[in-house]
Design a protein around this nucleic acid. Sequence first.
RNA 1: GGAGGGCUAGCAUAACUGGUAAUGCAGCAGACUUGAAAUCUGCCGUCCAUUGCGGACUUGGGGGUUCGAGUCCCUCGCCCUCCGCCA
Length: 428
Amino acid sequence: MLDRKLIREQPDLIRRMLRDRHLELDLQPLLDLETRRLEITNQVEKLKAERNQANEHIAQKKKQKADIGGDILAMRKLGETIKQMDGQLKEVESGLQAALLSIPNLPHESVPRGADESANQEVRRWGMRPEFAFTPKPHWELGDVLGMLDTERAAKISGARFVVYRNTGARLERALIQFMLDTQTQEAGYMEIFPPLLVNRDAMIGTGQLPKLENDMFRTAEDDFFLIPTAEVPVTNLHCQEVLQQGLLPIKYAAYTPCFRREAGTYGKDTKGIVRQHQFNKVELVKITHPDNSYAELESLVLDAENILQKLNLHYRVKALSTGDMSFASAKGYDLEVWHPGGGRYWEVSSCSNFEAFQARRANIRFKDSEGRTRFCHTLNGSGLATSRLLPAIMENYQTAEGGIEIPEVLIPYVNGKRKITPQGEFA
RNA sequence: GGAGGGCUAGCAUAACUGGUAAUGCAGCAGACUUGAAAUCUGCCGUCCAUUGCGGACUUGGGGGUUCGAGUCCCUCGCCCUCCGCCA
């Protein structure tokens, strides 16, 4: 949510920034509502001041046992008027709130301006594409032949865009999650969190998934819970409605959770393999920071995510997202894309964002600064990383001419010291 | 699912039969001090106004009764205790 004072005082700035995001938004209705809100507020507050004064009189007269019948009669009408105006004010306020909740964040000045993903800027790349003396297979072939991934049986029990990890596939998936959590908690100073996977509506509004993206979320009809689309939702909202001590910042959390997305409107897209699923596993990194440090914390967050790929020795590139490609709540973001030799393309395995105070304002996450003032924190998050894109990358990059898969060095301790998966689909 | 108790500022605690939210701790600024502690003063939830005075709102959310609601009524949420069910 944007600061309404900023909207009121610098509407042209807001218009320009949103235009940078390729959003032609007519701010006028919102500004009109805000003007109306101030008008009504001023009027009704005068009446309330009058009422408060009169009430004080009545209370005093009553104490002296004087007759107050006439005063009460006179106040009745005023009470009615106030009630009516409060009703109007409430209507204006809820309209205003709805409008505010659906406006995306403003892009930071350093974000590349552009219409879509083609305007994203490559910031750096690490490692090289591996050379194969044979034609590398895509992960869905490997997964099928080696008995690691079973999408057909998943379809029977759930449907399209689900997968059953089996045998070495299940084990490798679990090893990856463990490895990523260990790295982030032991080397990068994140605290491990394992949150609920069902959250309430307020939490979804707090991080910005709602109201805009309700159609992309799984929702339980009976209780109005949402299956989390990312651990960002429960973990960031851990501190909603709180005032944090400045000394606690930055707060750094790492959380493994399954993530659930309806992927509405993607029918027929990325159906090969497991890169786009209704349920996938992800280790998420969340930071709650002082506003002065959030951009430095964003850079180090990206490095923390990159660290996983480097340890796995996977070639990747980092892209600064353009104004046309960044997410709703983000002020600035980077994507990490890893090379899939079998598929012959890069896939996003992480997206790291600074939301500045956008989420903090919605979720009411504040801190006391060194002047004793209560201010909004900045929130950040990034995947560290998503396994549905990472496991395929490992399978495709580490496949052998014989048709098996080597285990990356760092994962060997996590699979009981085994060094490879044989062409028969067993650890060895 | 049922019964009872509770929810007041960062924390902790008050408020007569309804009369308009008090206090302590912590924090911030200032005064005093060589410095600190102690002490004193102000600030210490949100909004509006601001040349100056100020005003309104805020007792988990929403609604009702009333001239007036922390207090009474309805409703929803959450926490605690117990019963039932359950991995």
